[in-house]
């Protein structure tokens, strides 16, 4: 795309499915996933990269969905909470969050799960401090965080 354009055709893989869409270039990735693909499990909390609610995976690593254009995901593999749920990849975390009541309103939860899963993949036995550090960019207004930390620690113990 060597010329400046206002809309662009993109081809990407989202939760394992091939997606071909034409999007306005100003549409960010999380808005694209939510509005164009109906993947409403990723949430929008601030649109300036601070609250963490839009965290998703692009090519295997967590990123802020509001700080990337859908156009930039052309050719990428994107995973959202819907995909991670369907494959069972975050099942132990989900179970631990449920048991610990590590969510109240649930708005931050999909991003918390994906962010925690990224930690456990890199570090299967994190300390509480490492868990808190990993989640340092994900705002939760309901829980006070402790139950989330407990749940991630439980999932680590269960071998997520």
């Amino acid at each position: 795309m060597t010329r400046a354009v206002k809309s662009v055709a993109i081809a990407l893989k989202v939760n394992g499915e091939n997606v071909n869409e034409t999007v306005p270039v100003r549409r960010n990735l999380v808005d694209f996933l939510r509005a164009d693909l109906g993947l409403t499990g990723s949430h929008v909390g601030c649109e300036h990269g601070v609250c963490g609610a839009c965290t998703i995976l692009v090519d295997g690593v967590i990123v802020r969905g509001c700080l990337m254009l859908a156009a930039q995901a052309d050719g990428c593999e994107v995973e959202t909470v819907e995909g991670a749920d369907a494959t069972g990849r975050i099942a132990k975390l989900q179970a631990a969050f449920h048991q610990r009541n590590a969510l109240q309103c649930g708005f931050c939860t999909p991003a918390m799960l994906l962010t925690a899963a990224a930690l456990l993949e890199a570090n299967p036995a994190p300390t509480r401090e490492e868990i808190r550090d990993q989640l340092s960019g994900n705002f939760c207004r309901c829980t006070g965080y402790q139950a989330i930390i407990d749940a991630v620690a439980d999932a680590a113990e269960a071998g997520e």
Binding site: M1, T2, A4, V5, V8, V25, R26, D31, L69
Partner: peptide
């Protein structure tokens, strides 16, 4: 807020940039 209606390009070389 949503971004304004900007244009986008993705050059494939530094010369393009």
């Amino acid at each position: 807020m949503k971004a304004p209606d900007f244009a986008y390009m993705r050059p494939d070389s530094l010369d393009g940039v």
